[in-house]
Nucleic acid binder design. Structure first.
Length: 289
DNA sequence: CATACGACCTGAGTGC
DNA sequence: TGCACTCAGGTCGTAT
């Protein structure tokens, strides 16, 4: 699913309906989504009575911030979840979606986790392919989570110097480096292909063989592409929607992603698809070197 | 340590 | 209509 621009769009759309609401219950029709803690009881006990204070994003994670419980502490079982503040950390993986829907309405298809709110609405996390995960944790536990702790900077926080250093020591292909969340966070298959086209770089080029100028151009391309995608509300290929069911708009600006066999928007040569880093990659064999 | 690749799931689309 | 097959926005565990 969703890469950085889609999760950012969702976070912005969810905030108005969630901030200030009190969690009155949790339901998990599919326990597989509960990555930590793993029991429904622990989720319900730790979250109930807490107020949503903010909705944010880091990399492709959606974070829902919760304030103190009315009567914190003293309950047995999971003392670390009696902290003043907790977070829901959702990873949407390929097909995760969010909905805000009336609690008394039938749940959306593939509903995996439902957060009942005090205004008669529910935040529903749905996920057809069941790759998505939800965590309920303290700010400290979030920082200690290895996936979170090893995330690289957001694209606009990446400095040319750090990008140069990361690429110059990698032997693998540049596409794999862009997809590596520990180098820079938030890039997935769509935005990797779009950025590589914008920078005129083939996806299978070894990272360390790029020139300094090419690396500079690539970082600028990533930042520009991600920025334009956020402005367009993300990209809808199939499943992605905002919580209101609205599609993104950036798919109409794709230059190469999903366009193998079509003419290159720059030179009209036929765009080519190849497997790079295990992912289908589309590029122009003429414009990208 | 870095890299490569199958596994995890369910469905949509294609071709026979 | 049915079946077999391929592909899909991401990460993780295991093998090399």
């Amino acid at each position: 699913m969703p890469e950085l621009p889609e999760v950012e769009t969702i976070a912005r759309a969810l905030a108005p309906g969630l901030v200030g609401r009190v969690v009155v219950g949790i339901e998990a029709p599919d326990r597989k989504v509960l990555a930590a803690p793993k029991t429904r009881a622990a989720w319900a006990r730790a979250a109930a009575g807490r107020t949503v204070t903010a909705v944010s994003r880091r990399a492709k994670l959606l974070l829902v911030h919760l304030g103190p419980a009315p009567a914190p502490g003293s309950l047995p079982g999971a003392p670390d979840l009696d902290e003043d503040t907790l977070l829901f950390a959702f990873h949407l993986k390929m097909t995760g979606r969010f909905h805000i829907a009336p609690t008394d309405a039938p749940p959306p298809a593939y509903a995996r986790l439902l957060v009942r709110l005090d205004d008669g609405q529910s935040l529903v996390f749905s996920d057809m392919r069941r790759f998505g995960t939800a965590r309920l944790l303290t700010p400290q536990a979030l920082s200690d989570w290895p996936f979170y702790a090893t995330l690289g900077p957001e694209p606009w926080d990446m400095t040319p110097e750090a990008f140069e250093a990361a690429l110059s020591r990698r032997t693998t292909r540049i596409k794999a480096v862009l997809l590596d969340q520990t180098v820079m966070a938030g890039i997935g298959n769509i935005y990797a292909d779009e950025s590589l086209f914008a920078a005129g770089i083939r996806p299978d080029t070894p990272a360390k063989s790029l020139s300094a100028g090419q690396r500079q151009k690539l970082l600028a391309a990533v930042q520009a592409v991600i920025g334009r995608a956020i402005a367009a509300g993300g990209s809808t290929i199939r499943d992605y929607r905002t919580p209101d069911g609205v599609e993104g708009g950036f798919q109409h600006q794709f230059t190469v992603y999903g366009k193998a066999g079509e003419p290159c928007p720059g030179c009209r040569a036929v765009l080519v698809a190849a497997k790079v880093a295990g992912r289908t990659s589309t590029f122009c064999p003429h414009c990208q070197k």
